[in-house]
Structure formats: C-alpha cells, structure tokens
Amino acid sequence: MAVDRRKFLKAAGLVAFGVAASPLTSAAQEVDSLNLIKPEELLQEKPLTAKRWAMVIDLKKCLDHENVKDCAKACHEEHNVPFFDNPKDEIKWIWDEEFHNAFHEANHEHIAEKYHHIKVPVLCNHCDNPPCVRVCPTQATWRREKDGIVMMDWHRCIGCRYCIVACPYGSRSFNWRDPRPHIEKINENFPRRMRGVVEKCTFCEERLAKGQIPACVEVAKNDAIVFGDLEDPNSKVRELLRERFSLRRKAALGTQPEVYYLV
C-alpha cells in the first residue's frame, strides 16, 4: 500500500506540471482517507519543487459555482480555517468573489452577460514584489527565494495588521477572536492558529513538501485551476499562458501577482 502511494505521489508530481487532473482527483482522495502520515514515510516522499510556483485559473470554468465553493471548502478544511458567521470576524484563504469586485478595471457596463454569473476564486497572489512583506516589522511574512511562495510565521507575527493594510487584494485575514472553537472539522495534520495573528493562503506549502498538489487544485474539476512552475517553459501553466489571453488582478500596481486568470 505504502509503495503504491509513493508511486502515486510521484505521478502526482508530474501531474502538477500539467497532465489531466481527473485521475488525480480520485487517487488523491485515497490519500485523504489514510490516517496519519507516518514520519518515516514522509521522509521518503518526494517533495514537489519549482523555481517559481504559479497558478492559472480558467474563468470559463468558474461559471460552475459549486466547483469554486468546493475549492474553498477543501482549502479551509485542510488548514483548519475557522468559520465565523459574520463578515467582520471572517477568515478566508480562498473565496468566491464577484467579477466586478475582483477585476474592477476590466469591468464595464456592457460586459458579456456571463461575467455577471462568474464567481472568481481569489486568494493570495504570492506576488514577486509583495507589499505585505515590505511592511512587516518582524519578518513574520516573507517571500521564499527558492520557489516564490509568500509565507507566514504564526509564531512570529505580533498582529499589527500592517500587511493587511498593504495588500491590494484583501487576501489576508486577522484572527479577531479565538478561532479554535469555530473550526468545524479538524485536520490533525495541520496546526490551528491563536487569536491576534494574521493568516492567508500559503500555496499549500506543507502539501508540496509531501509531494501533494494544493488542496484547491486537487478538488477543482475540469482543470479549472492549474498549478505549476512558471520558470519551466514546458509546464502546463506556461502552455496555457502562451495559448490564451490572461489577466492578473491589479497588475498595474507592480506587485507581479503569480495567480493568472484565463478569460
């Protein structure tokens, strides 16, 4: 069994660089059904690595609202993100946003009807030039040189919320209240947070280390979200960006977001 799984995870590594996602989804659920990943096994997993992780989201496939909602659900369950019933205390790593909120500069009065029905999945853009990192007074958030992921250190964060102020995408959330009583289903493989710290999407850095693709990519149907190495010209993300027109949120600000949206 363990051997099979390792084989699969190696395959998943390749898939992440682009091959069809459907066999992946079913097999990945198998991984979830396993209990704790034993330390000695973990050591033998081959981590997924890239020079520059990036995500390509196909807006056409975001007409399927359930699909977008499932992605958010998978992410939030994976990372013990609490659920608060009010927008004031809300914590969100990835969520569905109206097109005109996610892309106001691209929106206009006579835009095709379908754009009114799209739910855009929005998350941390893991910018190449992240303003949140620039303002953090304690280096509690930083951009990982090896693969460009913008990380958070919840042991270090003092909760000044300057990063939230600096983020042009509203991608960061603050734990206004103790999140622990509000976690609906606990994932034992991931820590919770304490109140008073900021949190956000980490491109599933902990899953990549175990050779797994991000949770949202895994559950997204029809290749709605593709994840891969932007520096690899043969990667699926590069192929999609070559072939189709894409947008980035607020690209004019110079943050160099690494989440692309196919129109």
Binding site: C136, P137, T138, A140, R156, C157, I158, G159, Y162, G196
Partner: peptide
C-alpha cells in the same frame, strides 16, 4: 492595537529595515 502584545519585542529582535513601522 497589537493582536499579540507580548511579542512586541519581536520588532527589535527581528528588525526589518524595509518596514516603516519599525
């Protein structure tokens, strides 16, 4: 205003020269 006031010293233990708040 800090969410984790007991960690305030982190500002001087791990100073970030690019942060205006520092």
């Amino acid at each position: 205003d800090l969410g984790q006031p007991t960690r305030m010293v982190n500002m001087f233990l791990y100073p970030s020269l690019n942060s205006v708040l520092f």
